[in-house]
Design a binder for these strands. Sequence first.
DNA 1: AGAACGATCGACT
DNA 2: GTCGATCGTTCTA
Length: 205
Amino acid sequence: MARLSREFYNQNTVEAAQQLLGKVLVRRIGEELLAGRITETEAYIGRCDKACHAYNNRRTARTETLYKPPGHAYIYLIYGIYNCLNFVTEPEGEPAAVLIRGIRPLAGEETMYRLRYGDKPATEYRKKNFLNGPGKVCRALSLTKAENGLDLTGGTLFVCDSLEDIGITMPAMPKEVRKTGPRIGVDYAEEAKDFPWRFWLEKEG
DNA sequence: AGAACGATCGACT
DNA sequence: GTCGATCGTTCTA
């Protein structure tokens, strides 16, 4: 299976966040593959970013994963309820990561729906807001602290350019445009709250 | 040991 | 648009 190599993650975090848009996030649970097109990301860089958990090289039990080599999954609990998925970037020792804020389902949609909503019937609201938030992505891919530190070059959780890479025909994609703006939920981060480090895809028109 | 705080979400006006 | 839930992590002492 052709997946992004460690070299991809060993680069500037803002670049990685932009390049990840449109790529395919794959999660394997047993024999089943769940996949989605990445539609929203944010960059967090410890060296210079007060919104990053590892700002100023802050090193605690939680941030330990950010000091692993690039290409590992940093997953943490937020607001006591939700998990957030990040990919560790930059050369080893530079704590930084890309937060995955949204995906569009490509494979295993029924399983993802069940993980997220259980037996609740699909409504327009639920379909529209299925995977457009970091807590939702983790819920639908069954990612928790147990998966924190996973190596993205392995077979359990990884990113590839296309669904064809996992043997599934890629459906036609709606035309989308790239957008850039400030990050969500970091108003406390002083000057860093305005950094334009959020990237997303929007349907054209 | 205790307090404060979230890289959110869903329900509701 | 507003607001409360909820609990692990972090910091202070």
